[in-house]
Design a binder for these strands. Structure first.
Lengths: 189, 189
DNA sequence: ACCACTGGTTGATATAGATCAAGAAAGCAC
DNA sequence: GTGCTTTCTTGATCTATATCAACCAGTGGT
């Protein structure tokens, strides 16, 4: 089984016999560091598995960039509103490093339902899991200090520290780079 | 068309001719103030439209109650993880006032797919919208001050101020009741 | 009417984390 | 390597918001 098939199977729980056919819909492509996967206000018609590299989802607020999320190897990236509802994208999505992707466009994504019997249900399941993850994230802002969010991040996604600039991690965690730096320092001692 | 059918049609975009049959799955029931709709750690097998009243979704953190969400008239309430995946509930959900509900249980919810052709897709759409709402909420914690979140809340859900204790709204917005009180005071002048 | 209870306000103080500013390190180009 | 840019760290200060504490205003029960 190709790596591509493994990614897809893992994410959506597609029956093994349908995997090869499903996988043909996903095309390999690449992004160079700093290239945009998608621009706010334009359409984003692509959903991709990240085979290597990392991307950051952000938006501007009062002239500053606020990082909403960082997606890395083995994860999915898209602008959900655009891919699901055909709206313009809510987010800027930019490659933090050279990226290799397996990508499917909006039309093909919708066509998957034609031969995967329970495709809508699989999508529903997938989006529900994303919802629960965001629910946890909201709760972390309601109930935790910056230091606790940092600790939790260490446990869940420590590997990102070696892959992407810390300033973006700080922003994603709702703190300044200075605060993140101090927390790291404090924890090393 | 009954009010029940209107609620359901509005939320899920069900074809008018299927509405009466769909509506029969939803049973009217009521909760008294302070009664629990669902308890953390137990199963939550119900999804309900709120016909009147309000409920609060919360969890305990360090012995304190942290309010994740408040749902009011015209909105849906459930513990998504429990209803979707059959897990135990992540949240405590309690009536803030006497509530009238239209409720469907997990089995019937799954049975809706048997005669509503594109039911899974409708659910997918619904959950996606919830996801986008949470995305906005996360962004509000990343990029806004307590005062700005309060202002945004005023625009979106001001009516809740007259329906539920302010301490829960404060918690949901990620601030203390004292801070909310001061912000309100400041804005009246 | 009275008491008890819950919820809201106000003031004084404390503190986590932001901001501002200056260096230090680490990448990257040539 | 040498310089140039980007990122990270450290220190000094400031500020939004939390905490603690007292008090006040409703509301429901008896």
């Amino acid at each position: 089984m190709s790596s591509k098939e493994q990614y897809i199977g893992q994410y959506f729980g597609i029956q093994p016999q349908l995997l090869p056919q499903t996988a043909t819909f996903f095309k390999e492509n690449a992004l160079l560091k700093n290239e945009y996967f998608c621009r706010q206000g334009r359409n984003c018609n692509t959903l991709s598995f990240i085979r290597s590299g990392a991307l950051r989802v952000f938006a501007y607020q009062d002239g500053k960039e606020v990082t909403q999320w960082i997606a890395a190897e083995g994860e999915l990236i898209t602008d959900l509103s655009s891919i699901m509802f055909g709206t313009t994208a809510r987010w800027e999505i930019q490659a933090l490093s050279d990226c290799e992707l397996y990508s499917i466009d909006r039309n093909d994504l919708n066509r998957l339902g034609d031969f995967i019997p329970n495709w809508a249900a699989l999508e529903k399941t997938f989006i529900s899991k994303c919802f629960l993850m965001l629910e946890d994230r909201v709760f972390s802002f309601l109930s935790m200090t910056a230091e606790e969010r940092y600790q939790q991040f260490l446990v869940k996604r420590m590997h990102l520290f070696n892959e992407v600039p810390h300033q973006y991690i700080a922003s994603m965690l709702g703190m300044t780079p200075e605060t993140l730096s101090r927390l790291r320092n404090k924890n090393l001692k």
